[in-house]
Design a protein around this nucleic acid. Sequence first.
DNA 1: GCGACAG
DNA 2: ATCTTGTCGC
Length: 227
Amino acid sequence: MFFRNLHSWNVSPKEAIDIQNRLKELLNFNTNVHNVSLVAGVDLSFFGEYGLAVIVVLDRNFDIKDVVYHVQKIEFPYVPGLLAFREGPVFLKAWEKLQTEVDVVFFDGHGIAHPRFMGIASHMGLFIEKPTIGVAKRKLVGNYENVPEEVYSYSYIKYNDKTIGIAFRSKKKTKPIFISPGNLIDLQSSLHITKLFLNGYKLPEPTRLAHIYTQKLKKEFIGKEPQ
DNA sequence: GCGACAG
DNA sequence: ATCTTGTCGC
């Protein structure tokens, strides 16, 4: 699949922050996402010096239509707020291998619910030029009021007087998940489409399945390839 | 200085 | 994310 390379990945943490501040001006949330038939879920696993990215494509019946993955060395350290610089390069290599056209892409991490509105879902959204949604298991920045215990209840995440996402109770007796738009989609649509792909678990099916593949493929890889 | 801190 | 088994609760 195609993607636009907006900058070099061989940068320092400080340069990465400058890039994020520059790219955030390119984000667009005024798009209407209609006819969502195929979506993709992205996740990564790690072993040794390597990272393994998986992209799973699903239809609205949760049937798997395609799966691609890519393994390569990880160059950037994990720094809260700079996740895209660690996982982005691996994801993009897997994205190049994808032959199936999708309507929306779910990422395991935040979209604009980020100190500079450039979480991995937003960052990758600018590269692949497709609607992206960030679904994280934990908060990065912002504040939100207590989310009622009732399923599907939610509260908005505020950061510097701006609404950046939603803390959403996706399953009974489970902590909320954090949903935020990446690029080319608005907050309400992000919530709506995420609900569309929930399948009885805390995390939406695209991301949940991508995670399962990421763990399974890693084990196969460790057993075959010499390290 | 202290607390927060995606994966 | 990853290192790792059982265990408490719904």
